[in-house]
């Protein structure tokens, strides 16, 4: 079972604001997921390489040839705020 502080830490990293009761739910759900990992851990995995991809594919590469980009109006269409033909965001400095 992971502790409440870990839940809060992960929530903060994910920019989530959790109510105390939500923290409890998350604690249980995350712990449940991690138990699956423990199940894998309990097996003898010597000599088994970590599986990062399930597809038997390598080297899917693209030629360095330009394709049309979006018209700017299209690119900016979903922006909350458009300033100077750019995406306006809260102050960052």
């Amino acid at each position: 079972m992971i502790d409440e502080n870990t839940v809060r830490h992960v929530a903060r990293l994910a920019r989530l604001r959790l109510e105390p009761e939500e923290e409890k739910v998350m604690q249980e759900e995350l712990s449940g997921i991690l138990e699956h990992i423990d199940a894998i851990r309990s097996m003898d995995l010597d000599g088994v390489p970590p599986t990062t991809h399930v597809l038997a594919l390598e080297n899917v590469l693209r030629a360095d040839v330009p394709r049309a980009s979006l018209p700017r109006e299209e690119a900016l269409r979903e922006a909350d705020d458009v300033v100077d033909d750019s995406f306006g965001v809260p102050r960052m400095d």
């Binding site: 693209r62 040839v65 330009p66 394709r67 980009s69 979006l70 700017r72 690119a75 900016l76 100077d84 033909d85 750019s86 995406f87």
Partner: peptide, 15 residues
């Protein structure tokens, strides 16, 4: 496949 650019008007090379 968006083209690289330097100094072009903003947000004209996106997809």
């Amino acid at each position: 496949g968006c083209e690289l650019s330097f100094g072009d008007p903003p947000n004209t090379h996106t997809c």
